[in-house]
Amino acid sequence: MPRALVLNELDNVATLIDSGKAGDDCALQGEAKGTVRLLADVPFGHKVCIKDTSAGQEILKYGTIIGKASAAIKPGAHVHTHNVESIRGRGDQAGSSK
């Protein structure tokens, strides 16, 4: 069973410390317990969603904002650049202030 670390009880993501395959039950360690069933393959070091997250909602790791969801994310989904975007350093979104 692949393992995933939860760093803060507020977090909606956990970091896999083994590689996980779709359908695997992933064991949560750290600040949350239990398992989450992976909806997709999640490589070593990548994140899995552990709480239902709507589009635009903040993604929390270390109890701190690391970006916002660019799409709705279900528990068990791979959380990465395809469904999370950075809020910082976005000169492309500076728009009319340029």
Binding site: F44, H46, I66, G67, S86, R88
Partner: peptide, 29 residues
């Protein structure tokens, strides 16, 4: 920001992203 660019893809770098880091905020923490 003045350059009008999105720093994603430069930082985090492609190898950071392959390693699971999604945003500069996550990398910074």
């Amino acid at each position: 920001m003045k350059m009008g660019l999105d720093i994603r893809g430069t930082n985090p770098t492609p190898d950071n992203i392959r390693g699971g880091l999604t945003t500069i905020e996550e990398k910074a923490l």
